[in-house]
Design a protein around this nucleic acid. Sequence first.
DNA 1: ACCTTTTCTTACCCATGGGTAATATATGGG
DNA 2: CCCATATATTACCCATGGGTAAGAAAAGGT
Lengths: 271, 271
Amino acid sequence: MGNIWDKHPESMRDQSDDMDARSPANHQSPWLPFETRRRARDEKREAVLRTAVALFLEQGYHRTTLNDVAERLNITKPALYNYFGGKDEILFECWAIGNERVDDCITEIAAGGGKGLDKLRKLIVRYAEVMTTDYGKSLVRFDVRDLTEHNRKVVNTAKKKIDRAFRDYISDGISDGTIKPCDPKLSAFAIAGSLNWIGHWFQPGGPMTGDAVAEQFAIRLTEGIATPSMRKKADKPPRKGNAPREDGSEHHARTAARAAGQSKRARSRLR
Amino acid sequence: MGNIWDKHPESMRDQSDDMDARSPANHQSPWLPFETRRRARDEKREAVLRTAVALFLEQGYHRTTLNDVAERLNITKPALYNYFGGKDEILFECWAIGNERVDDCITEIAAGGGKGLDKLRKLIVRYAEVMTTDYGKSLVRFDVRDLTEHNRKVVNTAKKKIDRAFRDYISDGISDGTIKPCDPKLSAFAIAGSLNWIGHWFQPGGPMTGDAVAEQFAIRLTEGIATPSMRKKADKPPRKGNAPREDGSEHHARTAARAAGQSKRARSRLR
DNA sequence: ACCTTTTCTTACCCATGGGTAATATATGGG
DNA sequence: CCCATATATTACCCATGGGTAAGAAAAGGT
């Protein structure tokens, strides 16, 4: 494994021998085994999503049951319906978190200005980084057809926006001379394809961190279309022995970043 | 009850007077409405796979029922079990056909010799072409986790082989000076990602034929890593108004090409 | 303490769909 | 024409899993 393809290691995570409340399996769940359940509602909602997205990626959406999700949180299936209207809504919200991150990148880059090639590079780096996280992977690993008609439209609109960003920055680059003349549509496909595929093979804990991958991809994916004078030095072979990043880094970043964005998404079926 | 809007009253199937065998709806199925079912076994097997792969891509594996497959072939679900041991076996065989095509490319290219960059370009072209066909898309759209333990191993072995081909050709190119020094693993990821993604967006009947896409990708994906002297002219913007290819082309090519390869695959559960 | 609201559990329902058993129909050889 | 074999059909089985109903157990206000 570690090849260009998916690797889906069989999950080995249950250590069910021990009923102790502080057993490591329950460490990240706000529902500590049978008491002390006084967290805020939103915190629990997020815990559901965090667990769900992990399971959906591990096992696939259709092979993951709501019982699986509930079990990992020390609750039972119907409890989930206090926070979500159904399985497909959970799926959608996972996707929405990932999309929000990409959307923030686009907004930020659009505000920042700069030459076409620079904007493209920025987008590649940021997009690649997102693609190495669980919620980012949602964007490419989840199947739109599992959503309701309405949510499917939302997703498709968002995808078009991302596609436009790639194409526009390439077009900008061609106009301002930082990118060689080429077909923006096709180049966008090629670049986005490479990046999206990261969501299929990247596993944290591997030889490279997500940031390192992003950096390398930004170089590789632009060296072909950049105007000769604009090319970076590149091609120092990527550092191999990177220290794997600490476990919670993604988590902290996410939770912090979302507090603001939370209200952006529709809170449907709040009951 | 029994008005004209009723879909399929059981009695309809029996009376062959009004249901002409040459009715257009049944045009591509060997099981013409209720008689004249004398095709060879293998032809029917292939028809099942052809229908199945199309449906799996259209609707997704889990949303496609065996009844869907059977219905489109004018038969009933249990009839499928004359040819396949189960749903997952159908999935596997679809994948196997796609893999066979890629495998043939690799064998051919390995036999052909040439510089690293040329071999890489050849592989990209051929792989991209495969990726624009239904069976090729199987390789990247189907989920390994839907297969049996045994078949999953087969798939993973095959994927490793494809991965090796990409990496080896890149390494060869670096050795013989046709490719700039770079990390073969990462470059293989980037290139294969782009190509695999074709299987997610390409639709025949669009502005470009599969071959045109393949040709363009071969240029774009190698211009970044090729040694300066080895770069192709490229960058004549791709022709836009391509005539969509005729309907049956993929079909004919496939049927012909497979007659030989048929025996290669294990014919499990032949009963 | 008491009542209300929220949250969670136990115990169900039931549609779906893969797979099987028994049986009918076609096919092809002698 | 009859029988053996291959192939299809009808009528089932039943595990799975999303979703719901009813009520217990916290939480919270007063």
